[in-house]
């Protein structure tokens, strides 16, 4: 268990370092950086490389946003394998619904109960 945690820490941390390098060296906004990482995750899954990373690093690979690109591609590929061309479109959100639905639901709840507090840097 400790080894799994350590691997999650290291792999997750390294993916964040890649993000930091894109932001600092490329002088890009967080939105640009995250978009690049999502595309990266999606492409890695095209080469069947992301799932082995999840098997190795667990949450270290599922928590960074790259995993979102991976799940989208993974869903699309799985359906494409079964149903051909049509599956590319229909399978996309098969695996990855939880991130988006959780964000929408908690976003709404957050808006209901919280106010922004700019005065506390």
């Amino acid at each position: 268990m400790f080894a799994t945690l350590l691997i999650a820490f290291i792999v997750g941390g390294l993916i964040c370092v890649v993000g930091q390098l894109i932001m600092d060296l490329g002088k890009l906004t967080p939105a640009h950086t995250l978009s690049i990482l999502v595309v990266l995750g999606s492409v890695l899954d095209g080469f069947n490389l992301y799932e082995p990373l999840i098997d190795f690093a667990g949450a270290g690979a599922t928590i960074p946003i790259t995993s979102f690109g991976n799940s989208l591609t993974h869903g699309a590929l799985a359906e494409a394998e079964k149903h051909g061309w049509i599956g590319v479109l229909t399978g996309m959100f098969e695996v990855t619904s939880s991130g988006i639905s959780a964000a929408i639901v908690f976003g709404m709840i957050g808006a209901l109960i919280f106010h922004s507090k700019g005065q506390h840097p």
């Binding site: 993000g19 976003g107 922004s116």
Partner: peptide, 28 residues
């Protein structure tokens, strides 16, 4: 943290939730 808090899915959540809280004043 910079990318350390932006890249994990919590950063995605923060982007969504902060926008939701911010625009509360224009209605739901």
């Amino acid at each position: 943290a910079g990318a350390g808090s932006a890249v994990p899915v919590t950063g995605f959540g923060n982007a969504v939730i902060s926008s939701a809280i911010e625009h509360k004043s224009e209605g739901y």
